[in-house]
Structure formats: C-alpha cells, structure tokens
Simulated scan of single mutants.
Amino acid sequence: MRLKLLVAAFAISLVGTGARADEITHSFLACGQKTYIMGADGVPSWTYPANTRDGYVLDDGIIILTLSKSKLHSGGAVVSIAPDGKETLIWKGTQSEVNSAQPTADGSFVITEAGNNPRLLEVSVAGEVLVEFPLACQKENHHMQTRMARKLPDGTYLAPHLLNFAVFHYGRDGKVLGKLDTTVPGDPDRKIHTWPFTAIRHGDGHTLVCCTNGNRAVDFDANGKIVWTLTNDDLPGKWLQDPCGGQVLPNGNIVVTSYAGGRADRNAPKLFEVTREKQVVWKYADGQKAGIHHFQILTTNNEKLQGPALK
C-alpha cells in the first residue's frame, strides 16, 4: 500500500469549527474504517488507504499502523511509514487478527495475535521475536480475545481480554500477575457486557479502562479498586457508544472515542475530552457512520504533547 497525501475531496467536518481562541484544539491520528491525521483546524493533512486498528506517530515522524485483515494481509499486519512515504512491513499476522502494536522506548513493538493460539509478541523493527507467550484468554471467539496490549515501564504487560471481562497483567515470561475485573458492581452474572478494550497505566499506578459494549470508562487505583467511572449519565447525550480507544493527556484529562457514535446520530461526537470532574471541554464529529477504533492526540492548542502517549 502506498501513502497518500490528502486530496480536497476528503470531506469531513469538525465540531467547533470557528472556535474561540480560548477553546481547546487538538490534532490527532485516527485509526479505524478510515485512517487519517486531522489538523487542529479541521482539515486532514494525511490519509492512508486501509482499515486500521491501532496506530502511533513517533517523534521522528514515522507512523506505525496495525492493519486489519484484508486480501493483502489475511491475518492482519504491522507497518511502518516513513515521512517520505516509504512503507516497511514489520510483522505479517500468522493467525486471525493482529489487534495492536505498541512502539516501546527500546525500539521494539508489542503485538498481539488473535486466533487458535492467541499470543503476545515483542518484536524488533526487523521482525525478530524478542518475547513470546500465550495469552490466557478464551479461544472460541477469536475476534473477542484481546485488543490494546501495552508494555509497562517495569517490563510487564497489560492485555484487555474482552470476553474474560478483565484486564490481565502478565510478566515477561507470560505468568499472570493479576487481573482487573471490569464486571459492573452488583452484576455478578455479567448481564451487562463490559468488555475491556483499552487499558492505560497512568499516574500513581492507576489504570484507565475503556469498556466497549458496556459503554463506560473506569479508573482503577493501584490496589485494583474502581475510583472513577464515566457513563452516559455523566454526559450531555449518549455519547459512549462502543467506547474503544482512550488516552490520558498530560493534564489528566481523558479523551475517549465512540466507535459506533455516528450510527444512530450522525452529529454525535466520535471523540470527546472530559476533565476528572466529567466536564466536556472538546469534541469532534465527522458526520459519518464509520467509526474511530483508536487514535492518538498529537497536539493541544498547536503544542506537541510531550512524553509517551498514554493510550
């Protein structure tokens, strides 16, 4: 696939166009049924002609994308795209899906594969396997095995397992070190499906988890206790519709994407930012049914975000 610069025909709109100078603006990478970089002015600057599941823009301008399965990559793939448009294959999936690829500080990539033998891998930029272990999730439903696996600063890993209703914490050897149960309190039979999709370690050992289908985001403290919850009852409308990806910003605010946000209401935001007090301070909509699977906020008020992206 070849990197494509944006053409004027790419029609998209930004909620808040014509915003006041004191309003928040963001630029961001969007991954999903459409893949693009949206400028703070509401004008996309770059597009990619494939469906993607995860993505990162690195400090040197390289873009890492996790590709959905396709005719070209039947098991999904991970690619690197240089600023000049040159594309390099990092990993070609060997099973049903590749669902995430996190660049680490060491230059490696943390990848998950779904299939008969779900596994986590850490590979070099050349595709050499550095770490590999099986994931302790259910095996019957490949698509619902896992999503955004992330390596933590201590060298361990977090992996959300959707139908296991928990975020698993793995050691480098694959040993399960602990779990964060995303079951709704008071619902032991799990009639409310709260499938964990994104798990973000932040602050003093906290973990923010976006629960798709359950339409909620929860923040666990270092002891595994839920200390903050965001639901549609906290918002101006039913904006949490399959909240897949999330990101914790340097100021502590949280951005969430609703993958199904445009299906019932085309004007519903695809992305929105809330404070810890649950005040909405920014939102984005594009008037399309196609959702944003995950994203990366790149700038705020034209200032590049510093430090690793907590997403």
Rank of each mutant, 00 (worst) to 15 (best):
D22T: 15
C137Y: 00
K86Q: 13
N117I: 06
G76C: 13
C137M: 13
A136M: 13
T146S: 15
E87L: 07
A82D: 04
T17Q: 12
L29W: 01
L65W: 00
S124K: 14
V131L: 15
G55Y: 05
T94M: 07
E113F: 08
V57S: 02
K71F: 10
A30E: 00
Q95Y: 01
D22M: 08
T52M: 02
K92P: 02
G127Q: 08
D22Y: 09
V79D: 02
A136Y: 07
V78E: 01
G42S: 07
V129N: 14
D41R: 03
T66N: 08
I90M: 03
L72G: 08
H142A: 15
D54Q: 11
R147D: 06
M144G: 06
S96W: 01
L120A: 05
K139S: 10
S45W: 10
A77N: 03
G32H: 03
L29V: 05
H143F: 14
G107M: 10
V57K: 00
L65R: 01
S80T: 03
L65S: 02
E23I: 05
E87K: 01
T104Y: 13
T146M: 12
P118R: 12
I24T: 09
L130Y: 02
V43A: 09
E97L: 09
V131K: 15
I62A: 08
M148L: 13
Y56P: 00
T52G: 01
D84E: 13
A82H: 12
S96I: 06
Y48R: 04
K34H: 07
P49N: 09
S68T: 09
T66A: 08
N117K: 09
K92W: 00
N116F: 06
A82P: 00
K71I: 06
F109T: 03
S27D: 11
I111L: 10
S45C: 11
I90K: 01
L67E: 04
I111M: 07
T47Y: 04
P44K: 13
L135S: 03
S96V: 10
V131D: 05
H73G: 03
I37E: 03
Q33C: 00
Q33N: 10
C137F: 02
G127T: 11
V125D: 12
Q138L: 10
S80F: 00
G127L: 02
L58Q: 15
P103C: 02
S124M: 09
E128C: 12
T146Q: 13
S108N: 15
G61H: 11
T47Q: 10
S108P: 02
Q102S: 06
V129K: 15
Q145G: 03
L130A: 09
K139Q: 09
M144C: 09
T25F: 04
D41H: 07
L58P: 11
V78H: 00
M38T: 03
C31M: 09
T35C: 02
